[in-house]
Structures are given as structure tokens and as C-alpha cells.
Simulated assay, not measured.
Amino acid sequence: MTPSTQTPRFVDAILDWRPTAHIARLALVSAYLLGAAVKASDFPGAVAEQAHFGMSPPAFWAALTIAVEIVGPVLILTRRWLWLGAGMLGVFTLLAAIKANAFWAMAAGHDRFMAMNAFVEHIGLIGGFVLVALLDRKARAA
């Protein structure tokens, strides 16, 4: 084992492995790609979901959601305008978290706890999008 101020060799090996960054980006956007595939394969269900959350007109919001969930990940995975893809998904995630997980408007209890947990998880994803954009900018500058 190396001193605590140095990264262990096996961690260096993983981080230096060329596919690691791509795999990490894929992991970050995987839920959005899956969500787009599910919504696109059941568009009436996607429209019903938007209606459930009070979005009007629901078909427009369903189509926009599918588009964001496809375009954002593609931009991140291809590293073409990665900052834009990360921004798209970050804003989308924040708006979805506010709309779908408004724990502050719920009575105390299990449902509020679950909504608060989901909201905080979404905030973590937003942090991941900021980090991937920062890392990409640093990699391009190097």
C-alpha cells in the first residue's frame, strides 16, 4: 500500500484505463437513455405521465422530455458540446425534481421522506453533470 497522500496503484490503473471515462459518462446518462426508450416505446404512457404531473399540453412535454433524454446523453457520450448536454440534463433534472418530488409541500411521514430522498439524489446527479463538464473542459485545455 502506498502512503495515504498517494493514489493506490490499482486505482491509478482504473482511472488511467482509456475506457473508464466513457464508461463513467455512460453510467451517468444511462437512466436518461432508458427513460427515453421507455417513453418512446409507449408514447401514450409518456403523455399520461406528463398529464399526471400537470404539464400542459402533455404530448408536447412528453416529446420534449424524450428529446432531452436522447440529445443530452448523446452530447455527453460523444463529447461534442458536452457542456450543453450536461446543462440540458442538469436543468431538466432540477425541474423534474421540483415538479415530481416536492417534499416541502407534503405532510411528514414516509412519502415525504421518500420524496426528499429522491430530490436529494437528483441534486447529486446535477453535481455529476457539473463535474463531467468541468473534467471535459480541463481535458480539452490540456
Rank of each mutant, 00 (worst) to 15 (best):
Q6I: 06
H110R: 10
L94G: 06
N101R: 15
A96V: 02
I14A: 15
P58T: 05
A21W: 04
K39R: 14
L135Q: 06
L134S: 09
A46P: 00
A13G: 11
A63Y: 00
L77P: 00
G109Y: 06
G35V: 02
L131P: 00
P3E: 13
A40W: 00
T5L: 11
S56V: 12
H22K: 11
F53A: 08
G54Y: 11
L34K: 13
D12Y: 07
G127W: 04
F92H: 05
A40E: 02
Y32S: 04
V91K: 02
A40Q: 05
F119M: 08
V130W: 10
I66N: 12
A31L: 13
A59L: 13
W104Y: 11
A102M: 08
L64E: 07
A46L: 04
P57V: 03
R137C: 10
A108H: 11
L33R: 03
E49R: 13
L94K: 06
G90W: 00
V38C: 06
M106C: 08
E49A: 14
L75E: 00
V47F: 03
F92L: 02
M114Y: 12
K39D: 08
H52M: 12
L33C: 04
L82G: 05
M55A: 14
M1T: 12
E121N: 13
Y32V: 01
I66G: 10
R18G: 05
L28C: 04
L134W: 12
G85Q: 01
I66P: 05
M1V: 14
L26A: 12
A100T: 08
I23D: 11
F60N: 04
G127C: 04
V29K: 00
H122E: 07
D16V: 08
D12L: 09
A67M: 10
D12S: 12
S30H: 07
L135T: 01
P8C: 10
L28T: 02
V47R: 09
W83S: 07
G127L: 05
L134I: 08
S41H: 14
M88A: 07
M106W: 03
L33M: 07
L64D: 05
L64Y: 08
P8E: 03
L64V: 04
F60S: 07
A13C: 09
E69P: 00
S56D: 13
M55T: 04
V71C: 01
A63D: 01
W81G: 07
Q50P: 05
A31F: 13
I98K: 13
L94P: 00
A31P: 03
V132I: 11
H22E: 09
A102K: 04
T78V: 14
F60H: 06
A62C: 07
K99E: 06
Q6W: 14
R18H: 11
G128K: 01
M114R: 15
L26G: 12
T7Y: 12
R112F: 02
M116G: 12
A102F: 10
D136F: 11
Q50I: 05
D111W: 11
V91P: 01
T7I: 15
R112L: 06
L125R: 09
L64I: 03
A37F: 13
A27L: 14
K99R: 15
L89F: 02
D111M: 11
V29P: 01
A108N: 13
G45F: 10
M114K: 15
N117D: 08
V74S: 10
I76W: 01
L131K: 06
D16A: 13
